[in-house]
């Protein structure tokens, strides 16, 4: 099962390529009550220790497949289910230092049955302290 908090502790770690840290990953679960077609996501913003990463540096892995945020806008037949946290992979040469970091994630989506202008921005979460072990 998933952690109650939207920003998940498990899965927070650097990503290594050829032995070098090239970025990091963090998992985020949707608390919206239904699954969301990828095209209806209006984007993820990741902020760590006050540093906000541009969206083109953040890819999203759902159902074992990795998408850029631009690619997601065109995919209307794949759904992000409630039982799965999305893995956000952030490009950051050198990765993050081991230890405690404050991680905040903002995510939003459209809602077809809510009048225009009232679609849901989930807003930025309060920063959660996560521990990076590798």
């Amino acid at each position: 099962m998933l952690e109650k908090e939207v920003v998940q502790q498990r899965g927070f770690h650097n990503v290594y390529k050829d032995g070098k840290a090239v970025g990091f990953q963090v998992r985020y679960r949707s608390t919206y009550y239904r699954g969301v077609w990828l095209s209806m996501s209006t984007g993820f913003d990741v902020t760590v220790d006050g540093e906000k990463f541009p969206r083109d540096q953040v890819t999203v892995t759902i159902g074992g497949k990795t998408y850029t945020q631009e690619e997601m806008k065109k995919i209307g037949n794949v759904q992000w289910p409630n039982y799965e946290a999305a893995i956000l992979t952030v490009t950051k040469p050198g990765g993050l230092k081991l230890g405690v970091h404050e991680v905040a994630i903002a995510w939003g989506h459209r809602t077809s049955y809510i009048p225009g202008g009232m679609s849901m921005g989930r807003g930025e979460t309060p920063a959660r302290k996560l521990v990076l072990v590798y």
């Binding site: 209307g76 459209r110 077809s112």
Partner: peptide, 13 residues
């Protein structure tokens, strides 16, 4: 079965 026709699948307006 609670389901939707997502008219705004690709944009809001």
């Amino acid at each position: 079965f609670g389901h939707w026709i997502d008219s705004k699948l690709y944009n809001e307006t």
